[in-house]
Every structure is written in C-alpha cells, then in structure tokens.
Design a protein around this nucleic acid. Structure first.
Length: 304
DNA sequence: GCCTTCT
DNA sequence: AGAAGGCAACGCCGC
DNA sequence: GCGGCG
C-alpha cells in the first residue's frame, strides 16, 4: 500500500495519504475502489456538488479502514485543520459547549475530506448562517425489507404531488440505499420546531389517506408499509448530501433525478462509476432548486 | 486518518 | 516510542 | 429513566 501523493488544487498543495488503499472491496459486478478513485470522483463532480454544500454544516461519516469496517460519524472537527478549511461553531441545544463543523466551500476542502475517507457527507437542513431556520424540507421514503423497488415509484410521485398541493416544489433524489428523498427548498423564515411539526402533519395525513404509507417508527407495527420518515427535519438532524457516496458495497451515490425519470428509477441505480457521465449528459436536476424556495412560515400556516 | 492520552 | 481510545445527535414510544 | 428506531 503505497505512501503519499501530492496534488495541487485551488493553488493549495495537499498530501493524499495511502491513495492506493482499497476503501470499497470488489463486489460481484463492480471492481474494487481505492481512495484515489474516491478523490477523483469528488473532483469530477465538484462543480455540481459544491453549490449544494455551500453554507451548510457538515457531518462526516468516515471509513479510514474501508466500508467493511465500522466507521464513525464526525461532527466536531476538533484538532488542527488546514487554515483554509472553513468551520462554523454552533452551540449544543441542551448541553453547554459547542461543535465546530466543517463547511465545504471549495474543491480543495472536498479533496481534503475525501482523503480523510469521508465516504458519506451529511448536511444540516439549516444554512450555517441561519441556525435554527431550515431552508430545506425533506420526506424520506423508507421501504420495508424485501419491498419491490418498483412499487416505490408511485409513492414517491404521491409525496411529490402532496408537496405541490401545499405550495412546495418537490425535488427527488435516490439515497443510494433502499429509498428516495423528496426535498423542497424553503425561505428560512420559520423555526425548526415548527417546520418539523408541519412535516409530521403532512406525513400523518398521507399515511391516513393511503394505507401503503405508515408513520410508525416501530418496525413490528409497520406491517409491510413504507415509512414516511420526517424526523430529519428536526433540530441538528442531517440528510445525505446530493452526490455523496454511500458507505455500502459498490459505492452507490445519492443522486438527484428528474420527475420523469421516476418511471424507471431505482434507489441504488447510480454509483461512483456512472454519476459523472450522467451529469455530463443530463446536468444537475437540482441546479435551480434555490429559485423555487417558498416561505416556511406560510407552509406551517397552511398545514396547521 | 489523525490527534490526544495512557503506559 | 508505541498502543489505545475518540471521533453524533434528536425525538418518539414502549417498556 | 433506558433502549430501539430512523
């Protein structure tokens, strides 16, 4: 396993440690993936990804020993970082003290994080400069074990339609796991607890109207139904960033899709080996998202 | 992966 | 000097 | 109050 390699990005010299280390072992249909390949992936999608990371507190999920090892979450960047890595400290809600989060504003930081084996980039729903006021609204569709992924498509459409009925513009991404996220941009003018209450109300109504959905968090009460998980709208919660790799065999990637692609979409269709090509030919379906932000306060009023 | 602390 | 340990968090609900 | 769940 070979030593170190220097790269220059944004006029900064970074040292990559163990670039040939295998982070994703080979699977039946995909070759092994090294850290250098993860770095190359993030460089290839940087222009698309960086706008989605700008001004967002990051939580890293790191796997220095590869995806077969346990890995760990990291919110507090703790020790020394290069001076050019942006961080924002936020106080704990209940305990004293604060957490110093990385905020990724440029390609060099993205590569720095990839070198730390950050195989999942999770983001908060509040802008870093507007803590406590979400500018994203998310519903996570989480199917039960053994669920046919094709049956999820009409359900994603149903949630998207409900978004439109309450004035939100829905944006869909595959999670790289088993489900989809339906996301909408908000004007951050409403406290997080009220946005969470709105999300719960929306999910509750959907589950009441359509028996294929549930809001039961206990597995043994879901009874084969698809969980509408809205808890991620709460304080200090996070969602997987678009275009983040996932720490699962085969290196799937959370990937935004067009509504029309739902007819054929699968939650694990995109991976480190095919996303750059997809972006080159189709562009980013979420590129214009921020233009469609609607007042979170108005959403809350409408759902009460 | 890297830093901090224990031995 | 080397080994060991750490690295998130919130709200729900059943018990 | 603790632990599973996401």
């Amino acid at each position: 396993m070979s030593g170190r390699e220097r790269v220059e990005i944004d006029g900064r010299v970074l040292t990559l440690s163990n670039p040939t280390k295998v982070l994703y072992p080979a699977t039946d249909d995909r070759a092994e993936i090294t850290k250098a390949q993860v770095v190359d992936y993030y460089r290839a999608v940087a222009a698309t990804l960086l706008p989605h990371l700008r001004n967002r507190l990051l939580t890293l999920r790191r796997y220095p020993e590869g995806v077969e090892s346990a890995g760990f979450f990291q919110k507090d960047s703790g020790g020394r970082l290069p001076s050019w890595v942006h961080t924002v400290s936020v106080p704990h809600r209940h305990q004293s003290g604060s957490v110093r989060h990385v905020v990724c504003e440029d390609e060099s930081t993205l590569v720095y994080l990839a070198n730390l084996a950050s195989l999942e980039l999770h983001i908060r729903l509040c802008p870093a400069d507007r803590p406590g006021y979400p500018d994203r609204f998310v519903v996570d569709l989480d199917p039960p074990p053994g669920h046919d992924p094709r049956e999820l498509r009409p359900l994603v459409r149903r949630v998207s339609e409900r978004f439109e009925e309450v004035g939100l513009t829905p944006y869909v991404q595959t999670t790289g796991g088993k489900g989809f996220h339906v996301v909408a941009p908000l004007v951050p003018d409403c406290p997080v607890d009220e946005v969470l209450a709105s999300a719960r109300e929306m999910a509750r109504r959907l589950a009441e109207e359509d028996r294929r959905f549930t809001v039961e968090q206990r597995r043994d009460r879901r009874n084969g139904r698809v969980l509408l998980d809205v808890n991620r709208n709460g304080h200090a919660q996070t969602v997987i960033a678009p275009y983040s790799t996932r720490a699962r065999p085969g290196a799937p990637v959370a990937t935004p899709i067009q509504p029309r692609e739902l007819a054929r979409a699968r939650p694990d269709a995109y991976h480190l080996g095919n996303v750059a090509r997809r972006l080159a030919s189709k562009g980013d379906p979420w590129a214009e998202m921020d233009r469609h932000a609607v007042s979170a306060a108005r959403l809350h009023a409408r759902l009460s």
